[in-house]
């Protein structure tokens, strides 16, 4: 069984969402739930740390697409960081780098929020 975990913690003006394991059609609802909880508590500055994520399919990508409008219309953003090359390749194939800020590591992404 390929597991998936999502952990969140506050960091300055942003929330860091740390992903671990395998994000597919089976595990995407867990990520969706976390996003939905952040929206409900008014947290719109989000850094997603992909360091521990080994796999993503379109079901996982769809979750990021589903929340970006709500986040941006509330003056926040979803910034992506720390992707392994094979995970980045999937985002790249679908043109995500044109629509999302993607950073090498989490700290770089956090600075963008904390320097506002």
């Amino acid at each position: 069984m390929n597991e998936f975990k999502v952990l969140t913690r506050d960091s300055g003006k942003a929330v860091v969402m740390e992903l671990q394991g395998f994000l597919d059609a089976h595990t995407a609802p867990d990520l969706e739930k976390t996003f939905s909880e952040l929206m409900a508590s008014g947290k719109y500055n989000i850094v997603v740390n992909f360091n521990g994520l080994n796999y993503i399919s379109s079901a996982g990508l769809g979750v990021f697409m589903a929340y970006i409008d709500e986040v941006r219309s509330n003056h926040g953003d979803i910034k992506l960081a720390g992707m392994q090359q094979k995970v980045f390749n999937v985002f790249d194939l679908l043109g995500f780098p044109f629509l999302y800020e993607i950073y090498k590591d989490q700290d770089e992404a956090l600075k963008k929020f904390n320097n506002i």
Binding site: S58, A59, L61, M65, D69, L93, L94
Partner: peptide, 22 residues
């Protein structure tokens, strides 16, 4: 059309698109 999909919050069709790319 990725930008259009973002507006509509729809991920459908991405899977087939990926399969054809890969």
């Amino acid at each position: 059309n990725i930008k259009d999909r973002f507006k509509k919050h729809k991920a459908g069709g991405l899977g087939i698109f990926l399969m054809r790319k890969l």
